[in-house]
């Protein structure tokens, strides 16, 4: 592990411990069970989006359509909830998976970056969203599903947050213990070398985008059931939040680096930070500023600034050693 990588990893771990500790000491109610439940509720939505997105990032690609996919999946779910909530969620996830696969299939065919293809898909999905909503907010009156999904389990969890945690575990096992998982890392690290060494790059990309689409759809589907509502408009910062969480967690934009554990770390850091600042009455503008500053610091430390810092530290240590030797 390089010096800079060690530095940023340490900073992430410190943040994950220091943030809750700092808020616990300064903010009343932060450690209450109800507030920890609120933290995991936020984790449930952002975590799923960031997890799916990070799998494409590990493979050296980027799926810009995840937020739009979540919106469309929410609308599909509420439209089809008459079939039963489970069937509606499955249909929405199926739509997400198919669109994700479509994104991957377009890549070799069009020979262009996934940023371009998925921005096209994102705009298309925005249009589909407005078409499905028909200028209205879709809602349904049965709140039993919402109550069931968001009921408190073990004090701080809900079925929705446990579903997200389960997805993290499944993807961690998939990436760690399967050949296809290793092919995904190889595709993101050195694509040409991966192809030459026989890695199934095409299949890896299809699986990555399918996971990304499916998880975005699952996130949108579950939040729409939780709110008993879906609309064609989603907060424009959702995609940025998911990408920020993945990057803060340590997933490299260049591919090949990152894991579900690191994504979970990034999501938790952002969620705890926003929760604590929320208890301190921070406005949405201040939250955005702090999130942006944190992301910038992590990116800088991941890059040349971190390397320069480590070089400076090494040189200072060498100079001190020389001085000790000379004085001796």
């Amino acid at each position: 592990m390089s010096g800079a990588a060690w530095l940023t990893r340490s900073i992430r771990l410190v943040l994950l411990v220091a943030l809750p500790l700092g808020f616990a000491l300064t903010v009343k109610h932060f450690l209450s069970l109800d507030n920890l439940y609120a933290i995991f509720q936020s984790f449930a939505f952002l975590g799923l989006l960031a997890l799916g997105l990070s799998v494409t990032m590990i493979a050296g690609e980027f799926d810009l359509s995840v937020a739009a996919m979540a919106t469309v999946a929410g609308l599909v779910t509420i439209k089809l909830v008459v079939l039963g909530p489970v069937a509606a969620v499955l249909c929405a996830v199926m739509v997400g998976t198919v669109i994700g696969i479509g994104n991957a299939v377009l890549l070799p065919w069009l020979q262009i970056s996934s940023l371009v293809t998925t921005v096209g898909t994102m705009i298309l999905l925005n249009g589909v969203g407005f078409w499905l909503a028909g200028g209205r907010v879709l809602s349904y009156d049965n709140f039993d599903v919402s109550d069931a999904l968001d009921q408190t389990l073990l004090g701080i969890f809900s079925p929705r947050s446990l579903i997200t945690i389960l997805c993290f575990l499944l993807i961690a096992a998939f990436l760690q213990f399967t050949k296809l998982g290793r092919d995904i890392y190889a595709s993101g690290g050195h694509r040409r070398a991966a192809i030459q060494s026989g890695a199934r790059v095409g299949l890896a990309l299809v699986v990555c985008f399918a996971i990304s689409g499916a998880f975005a759809a699952l996130a949108g589907s579950l939040i729409s059931l939780s709110l008993a509502t879906a609309s064609a408009t989603l907060d424009s910062t959702t995609l940025l939040q998911a990408a920020a969480a993945a990057i803060i967690g340590g997933v490299a934009l260049g591919g090949g680096i990152g894991s579900p554990a690191s994504v979970a770390t990034g999501v938790l850091i952002l969620t705890i930070l926003n929760n604590g600042l929320g208890l301190l009455s921070a406005s949405s503008t201040e939250l955005l500023l702090v999130n942006g500053a944190l992301l910038l610091i992590v990116v800088l430390l991941d890059g040349k600034a971190g390397q320069a810092l480590m070089d400076l530290r090494r040189k200072t240590a060498q100079t001190k050693r020389r001085n000790v030797t000379w004085q001796g």
Partner: peptide, 11 residues
């Protein structure tokens, strides 16, 4: 953002 507001209500 309805989702964020739901989290704020929890909080």
């Amino acid at each position: 953002d309805a989702g964020q507001q739901a989290s704020q209500v929890d909080q």
